[in-house]
């Protein structure tokens, strides 16, 4: 049993079903995603079938089943971003990184997530790379932004 998972589980001593989502959120906070083993661990702890837990976790947008890339890109796809050509940016990012939303690049460097709305519509379209925000994006400038991260790592 993973130490960290058991520490998280010990925070929920009574272990009812209504603790399930907070437990999964804590695990994701710790590891960045829900691994198969951690889901099985939670299932054992709460006395629920692990299929039920997967069923629940896949229902919600928050939960991921793959680790994040070293640079996690969250691209806003709200209404304002859409009318200011966010779909072009998704395409450009896909072309540059060769990944689609919800995927991670083969070298584990970038992962892409589409967000319903980040609530900064005056800066649309925008994306977040780890803790940095890139606002008023232009499809033509996307490659440069990604390149700057690649160079930064080298």
């Amino acid at each position: 049993m993973d130490d960290q998972t058991s520490v998280i589980l010990s925070r929920y001593p009574r272990g009812h079903r209504d603790c399930l989502i907070p437990i999964l959120q804590d695990i994701q906070e710790e590891y960045g995603y829900l691994s198969e083993s951690s889901v099985i661990e939670v299932a054992r702890y709460l006395g629920l079938p692990s299929s039920k837990i997967f069923g629940l976790a896949t229902f919600y947008n928050q939960f991921r089943f793959e680790p994040r890339g070293r640079f996690h890109i969250r691209l806003c796809h709200g209404t304002s971003c859409h009318v200011t050509a966010a779909s072009e940016i998704i395409k450009e990012l896909g072309k540059k990184l060769r990944i689609g939303p919800g995927e991670i690049s083969r070298d584990g460097m970038f992962s892409l997530e589409l967000v319903a709305c980040m609530g900064a519509c005056h800066l649309a379209p925008l994306m977040q790379v780890n803790d940095n925000y890139h606002t008023r994006l232009d499809p033509a400038g996307i490659r440069d932004i990604i390149d700057s991260y690649i160079e930064g790592e080298e």
Partner: peptide, 8 residues
Amino acid sequence: DESDPGGF
């Protein structure tokens, strides 16, 4: 749980 795109 405000999730409307454009609502914040």
